[in-house]
Design a protein around this nucleic acid. Sequence first.
DNA 1: TCAATATAGTATCGAGTCGAAACTATATTG
DNA 2: CAATATAGTTTCGACTCGATACTATATTGA
Lengths: 186, 186
Amino acid sequence: MPSSLDLIERIGQLIRFEQREIGVREDLHPIHIQVLQYLDKCNRYSDTPLALSHYLGSTKGTISQSILVLEKKQLIKKVPDNKDKRVVHLKLTPKAKKVLLKIDEQIFTDDLLDKYSDHVNNTVNKTLQSILKDLQTRNNHRTFGQCSSCRFFTKEGENKYRCGLTSEPLKLEETVKICLEHEPSK
Amino acid sequence: MPSSLDLIERIGQLIRFEQREIGVREDLHPIHIQVLQYLDKCNRYSDTPLALSHYLGSTKGTISQSILVLEKKQLIKKVPDNKDKRVVHLKLTPKAKKVLLKIDEQIFTDDLLDKYSDHVNNTVNKTLQSILKDLQTRNNHRTFGQCSSCRFFTKEGENKYRCGLTSEPLKLEETVKICLEHEPSK
DNA sequence: TCAATATAGTATCGAGTCGAAACTATATTG
DNA sequence: CAATATAGTTTCGACTCGATACTATATTGA
């Protein structure tokens, strides 16, 4: 029997193969798709080249090149930060969102998990989360968790949230985005 | 809560990042490591450039290039097939086996799965296997399963096995290797 | 049986990845 | 306000990757 880790690796490989196939049609490399998917999921503190390089495990220089390509293809736009002039934010264009939708439909359209009971799905999900956390802490990887699960996250009232690190207020929809500065709450 | 598929993708990403880090030290790209790992796991019908290209989801030309690099680094050796003169078999050198051992120790040394009960591990493993199978059949991917789980596999007696496709006898240790021609038994 | 076709693998091209290193510009620190 | 840290860019060389054309050997079918 293959180990669960082997299976995870192999499933991950197959997902990437499918992404690559779709990418070929759209003239996008796997790394491009990963960049777009990340930018779609991350919060406003984490849409920078540096955050991307942490998430994707490569260097600033490499990411800078990929961004150049995506900019040329009109899939992302650079927006300068209005506080720190060194920082740029990367925004998805409508064209990019269309591409992401197409990828999502093609890869996740079959409801691969629907056939299992809630109990099984729950067990699998919890175990995977725990494995992920172990892997992240093991090598000091950043966790890139959802804002609302972060130790800096505070709820101040009905629909009023705040990031304790930047002291800035957060909109409801922002609390489910992933963040470069995320640290597990316990 | 992130979906299990997202988690699998992310865990797969992290495993690849760790592989990349190790690879940088050994001057190997991720694809090189994947090639070596595949050749370590595959049976004697499946150690060819074509099988590799199926497993890794790329073209023959690309694989041919990677093989050239790995040959130059003395990590694999080409051995011509003695029946079909078009075919070459790729064999790992002792140097490659050392590299694989180092990678395995560094990535899988922590027994990430030991902390869960047998029951949980079993549930997770079965679900992952089922997801993998669904993904493979969905896009007509080859299954690359273990020889002994193949519909062509036959047991002829105590420690006597045979592949029904090639009609050749199989050694015990061969029955756990993965095969290009693998088709699930039911 | 032997010409047509299929198959395994190689060679070459151009665009892009990737890590490393050097670089520019802006912030922070002491 | 000088030293240092940080965000991002540029450049280099080796390599990936898909596409295409190619060589050599096997299989086929009229």
